[in-house]
Amino acid sequence: MSEKLLVVKDLSTTFATAGGPLPAVGGVSFDLGENETIGIVGESGSGKTVLSRTIMGLQPRTNVTVTGSAQIDGFEVVGASENEKRKIWGTEVAMIFQDPMTSLNPVMRIGKQIDESLRVRLGMSKADAKARAIELLELVGIPSPTERYSAYPGQLSGGMRQRVVIAIALACSPKLLMADEPTTGLDVTIQAQILNLLDELRGRLKMSVILVTHDLGVVATRTSRIIVMYAGRIVETGTTRDVFYHHRMPYTRALLESSPKVSNHSHTRLITIPGRPPNLLKLSDGCSFAPRCKFATDQCHLVRPELQPSVEPGHSFACWNPLPVNQNEATT
């Protein structure tokens, strides 16, 4: 693999809340090469949204502590001031937000919302920016972009709005695109369109993408590697194939079993994960998944397992009682 675009080392994000410190992300390390897509998967509450925003440096500026390191193309995000980070936002790294209903300014014409980045960040003239904005609208597959240019977000459907959000993110040709649940707020039929669009654009524009989702189906065919998160920590990571077929962590298996698959017989009962995600304010010293895990032993409840390598290269997991190697193919 060539030069690393993103290197994350031991990254932690802790919020100061009324109930005490809340460790939303703890000790996360991974890297991402150029033109690569990585998936971050977990239930709601696993810290994946916080992680993606922390990597970008977009966390709120009060009541939050970030430690560790996140370097985007050599730029250290952790500890950088808002003014310094502003230089990489949009041009080096951009984000596609979860809900296109709330992430577009409702009282600003969509053309202006795209223009703005071009004019402020790239110093384009008004006319050039408009021409480029219409190009971008066309690129993300919006029909009659010239008319849409002067529409308000309220006049567009959810899918169209998400395309606009993508156009805004792409405006300054970032090298790294963070997509935080980009399809959660959309109809199922639109979801695939948006994901395919993202995939196609990544290839054409030579970007790296971090795809954050709770839906394993989304990442299955579109990522080279997957990070599985639970309670703010990485519990398993590896190539997409390894995570799907050679996973060792019981949580990964539970997550796979709980997502519907086309290959299932109709009326197959989905297996749900018992219990609820843990309260991050009251984490035990042990494995955070232990209370919901059927393989849990005393050790699991007392000592937290660290990530350890599995047999395949680049595949690691955090578990005291991992599933045996090569036993998983049968279950999936």
């Binding site: 977009l58 949009g90 984000m95 979860q98 709330t102």
Partner: peptide
């Protein structure tokens, strides 16, 4: 959220 979005564009 659209303010966070505007922040992420790198606007002052």
């Amino acid at each position: 959220e659209f303010i966070t979005m505007a922040r992420s564009k790198g606007l002052s």
